[in-house]
Design a protein around this nucleic acid. Structure first.
Lengths: 358, 358
DNA sequence: GGGCATAAATAATGCGCATTATCATCTTGA
DNA sequence: TCAAGATGATAATGCGCATTATTTATGCCC
């Protein structure tokens, strides 16, 4: 039999006051018309100290309050499997922030899985209510789900840029556009002009932004775009050789190893003949010992910032009634973090031949 | 304004019955004296289908029911940091099981940190009540905390063997004793006799069990024990050379790399001169490319089994009143999983010289 | 036709808290 | 002197559900 834990009523009895008084003391913010004298306040606090009382988070939540739980919903499986780690970095940052904020993390592992992806269905949706708010991670969110989120005014934050829904989706993203353009700059500075791009051309924001950054930077320098199809590593390698590319920007979905292998078979060496810049960390857990140049996505920082933002949104919501003006502006709600460069061993100056005959 | 979600009362109204009837239909188990006709039952179910009703887990919990949340408490930080990954494998298995059981995972990241370790203090303790039960991971649990857990009858399961508290702590552990003894057997079969042990001699169960397995196996073969102090890698390497050891069992807390390096400097090669068997996976995230022989701890399996066990305990508890006999016996409550051998490149037959002159 | 099981359900209660409405007791000012 | 505030609190309510106690038919036996 679960022994009775101290409740506000217990504390109240000990302090000789009513339960509501205890609640007011605890929450600090007594509504207009309710006042607690300093003397009573102290008696209550003393009783709390003695009993070691702490609020039952379930009851808090049911009564419409906050319960210091923030949820994490991932559209794919949360933990690394099959050699791919999508969320590790983010979770790290989230945990760090959660610790600092003093909140617990709820992973929605119960959500129904459809086509290998978790869905926020009607029943799954209701479970979100367990937490004060929720972080959303992953690519394949569903339009109707988003609409529902917005409709119900449930606090949430995306990790990763989201432009749909008229910019009403709060997110913390990585600035792929700027970072990718910057990589082109690095290559230009080393004399490269024949710069290719390898990566998916999908509709996900990361792909769009990387390609955008590549396209803009190349156009600004009046260089021709060279998209290499790496569906087949051998054919792709042939194409790279044929077009005499001296540098490749590689999206992390693509395993750069294979390309390097295929090029190696053709006598083309990395980085002397072809430089590689990786546009973010590889998702593949086991990489070989190559240290790639390129940029990294500040995943930890993104996770931490997202949780902090979510926490702020939750706070705002709870005092929305009393304090009309929202303190969260567009810059808070839509954060783009810079992606720092990485200096590895896959970047070298363009071959002399290319520099003399561009 | 969070739009009103469907409640049992809504469903009841639609079906023309009372809220309690809906509750009974949902839970299936109407108490003695309460009966619901098939016809009413169907009407309720139909209303549930139409509304898409699903229970509010918070209310469920407050009312003393279960809410399909299982907690995970780690004494160290949950996610990998500082190059060490303590829990990754476990979490993987836990998540898999959670998905199958249809429960959400709550990570108690809010617990107060004392001396770099999370503590289950009075306030942290109350928060456990958010979940139906909780898994405990990590080494440094506190005696009084354990007592409290037992006193309150809160459902929990340890990951990792626990022998204290008179065997009343449920756990899922790895059989280090058998696995370590088996490693001695592998070495014996290859002609080794001068077998050393490198690892902490602490009071944690894993160390105790590994040393126990080593000691027993060596004694059974009437071989002398050789504990090597690796506090200083150089001194340790000297000792290995001096004692002419041909094989070393290494606990994973110890980084085997350093030992091999130190030995290499003395012209002693792995595995030709000295074989190494690793007693479990290394916690160090970045290892070099050596593939160690030894055994692995089935962490995923442990995590999954522990969650399943926890779930069963929770279920038992809820029907403890009606069904007096407990269906969980000692073998359920104290599971030891075998640790499969790993064939790497660090194991070789004993040098000829040692075989002829043992 | 009164007592009495049985069937089929509902009403009522409480979980622990936040919040709203309400109530006493003092001041003041005119 | 008495209404109008101000002060300091309490009582009451409801969140959504599980559970216990109670009620209302209906058939059946003697």
């Amino acid at each position: 039999m679960p022994r009775h834990r101290f409740t506000q009523a217990d504390v109240a009895a000990m302090a000789g006051v009513s339960q509501s008084t205890v609640s007011f003391v605890l929450n600090g913010n007594a509504p207009i018309g309710v006042r607690i004298s300093e003397e009573t306040r102290n008696r209550v606090l003393e009783a709390i100290r003695i009993t070691g009382y702490s609020a039952n988070p379930v009851a808090q939540r049911l009564a419409g309050g906050r319960n210091q739980i923030l949820g994490v919903f991932t559209y794919e499986k949360t933990f690394p499997r099959g050699g791919r780690d999508f969320y590790g970095g983010f979770l790290n940052g989230i945990e760090r922030a959660a610790e600092q904020l003093g909140v617990d993390m709820l992973l929605f592992t119960s959500a129904r899985v459809v086509d290998g992806r978790r869905r926020l269905t009607r029943d799954g949706w209701q479970r979100l209510g367990l937490a004060d708010g929720c972080l959303l991670l992953g690519q394949r969110e569903d339009q109707s789900e988003l609409q529902h989120l917005l409709d119900t005014n449930y606090p949430f934050v995306f990790i990763g840029k989201r432009v749909s829904e008229g910019g009403r989706l709060p997110y913390v993203g990585a600035d792929y556009v700027e970072a990718t353009a910057r990589q082109v700059g690095r290559l230009r500075a080393l004399g490269h002009t024949r710069i290719g791009y390898v990566g998916p051309q999908g509709a996900d924001q990361a792909s769009i932004d990387r390609i955008d950054g590549y396209t803009r930077a190349m156009r600004a320098d009046r260089l021709p775009l060279r998209f290499v199809d790496m569906h087949d590593a051998q054919a792709g390698a042939d194409e790279i050789v044929e077009r005499r590319l001296t540098a490749i920007l590689v999206a992390p979905e693509q395993s750069p190893d294979e390309i390097v292998d295929a090029l190696g078979q053709r006598g083309v060496r990395m980085p002397d003949d072809v430089s590689f810049l990786l546009l973010g960390q590889s998702h593949h857990l086991r990489q070989r010992d190559v240290s790639w140049s390129g940029f990294t996505v500040p995943r930890e920082e993104m996770g931490a910032r997202a949780l902090v933002l979510l926490s702020r949104i939750v706070d705002e919501d709870s005092r929305a009634a009393s304090d009309s003006r929202s303190r969260l502006d567009d810059a808070d709600l839509h954060q783009m973090l810079p992606c720092p460069d990485v200096d590895g061993t896959s970047l070298a100056p363009a071959p002399i031949s290319e520099r003399t005959h561009p």
